[in-house]
Design a binder for these strands. Structure first.
Lengths: 211, 211
DNA sequence: CGCGGGTTCTACCTTTCGATGGACGCCGCA
DNA sequence: TGCGGCGTCCATCGAAAGGTAGAACCCGCG
């Protein structure tokens, strides 16, 4: 631990949430909010100035870059601040990219204030805090490794999820209908399902495709 | 306008959001936060005490009742406070039930603080404020009236969305496969699609089924 | 009472899908 | 260098789903 207070940057597109984080964290001894950012781009620029210890980063910004990519860019620099994800969502599709991007912790916004402050201090020290729900998800991920789809397969499955027929997907991707069927067959075995709708259902559950 | 300050109840399961709303609204003259609730059930009980003018209500609570149902129960009583929805989401599936439940306004959490305060004053006066995105959605809804599915049809479509085959759906609902096909045919014409996956896609877009 | 709408069912035909098997090229590893 | 695994691509055939055209039942409502 250093002897100066921990300096925070709040990155969230919701003014109300920024005000709430500020209100909660500024009452804590040893914590100071020195800046706010309403977009991911602003957060990157502000974090580069070098006077920040911990960034509290939302994942979903209304427009522009997402929090995961911003996290990657912030942590890429030498001497970068720690990034603590504070978001509402805990789906697979969100948590894993954020953690891969170099986030030091992952909290949900329903966390009580004392947990939040504790996580900030932990992050400032370089150690990791995970929300229980996120930790569970990661453990499950390690226990049953999720089927990983190739680029082509996810591409095909995404179009299936939009309701396109095999023939239409083939035309869209400049492939034969037979090829689409072959890709789907592999997808079915990987996801352990036997129909396109079931594949879409489990893939969205696993966060393999959007929606 | 009355001469006493407008008394507010904050109903949101996120402590950070409650703190943010409190910080934003208490700096406004003529507004007082007199209570907070972390669950929909608490909000109903607190609103029944009669000393509240406006309830700021989230739609998504972690567990238990949702904000829409809580809104309905609060506004059902005589002399009930106004309910202003303040939420992150603006999907069809969320907005319409809330408005039907008697909400006086619908804001998104990315609203700037001054809009929030203005909406609270408008709500206290009994008039409606809608976020622009929500207003757009309602206008579109009026222009192209959404297909309405019967109970049976939504039931069938929900099972389709889970990946079941027509035969499996028939067994689940104690119906013939032919009946399922008949229901689906009607669903397709209503939604103007021609496949089960397309039906699931547009139905989820329209908020007719969950996920 | 008649009428419309929701629900259930039947039958036949066409289209699409899913299962299977095979082929080619790329890349890593022996 | 050769071999096998993997991603990609294609074709064939039985099974499932979709299109069409009915018909009957129940129930609420004018």
């Amino acid at each position: 631990m250093t002897d100066h207070p921990i300096r925070l940057l709040l990155a969230d597109d919701h003014p109300v949430v920024r005000a709430g984080l500020r209100a909660v964290l500024e009452t804590e001894p040893g914590l100071t909010v020195v800046a706010e950012a309403a977009t991911a781009e602003d957060a990157i620029a502000r974090a580069a100035e070098g006077d920040i210890d911990v960034v509290l980063m939302d994942l979903q910004f209304g427009r522009g870059m997402g929090g995961a990519e911003a996290t990657a860019q912030i942590t890429a620099r030498p001497g970068a601040p720690r990034v603590l994800i504070v978001t509402t969502y805990d789906s697979d599709a969100d948590t894993l990219p954020a953690i891969e991007a170099g986030a030091t912790g992952y909290l949900l916004k329903d966390a009580p204030p004392e947990d939040l402050a504790a996580a900030v201090r932990t992050a400032a020290a370089g150690r990791t805090t995970l929300a229980p729900a996120v930790a569970d998800r990661l453990m499950n991920r390690l226990r049953n490794p999720t089927a990983t789809l190739t680029r082509r397969e996810t591409e095909v499955l995404a179009l299936v999820a939009e309701g396109l027929s095999n023939h239409a997907i083939g035309r869209r991707l400049h492939l034969t209908e037979g090829t689409i069927k072959s890709h789907l067959a592999r997808i079915y075995t990987k996801l352990d399902v036997d129909s396109r709708t079931a594949a879409v259902a489990t893939a969205t559950d696993l966060g393999l495709i959007r929606r």
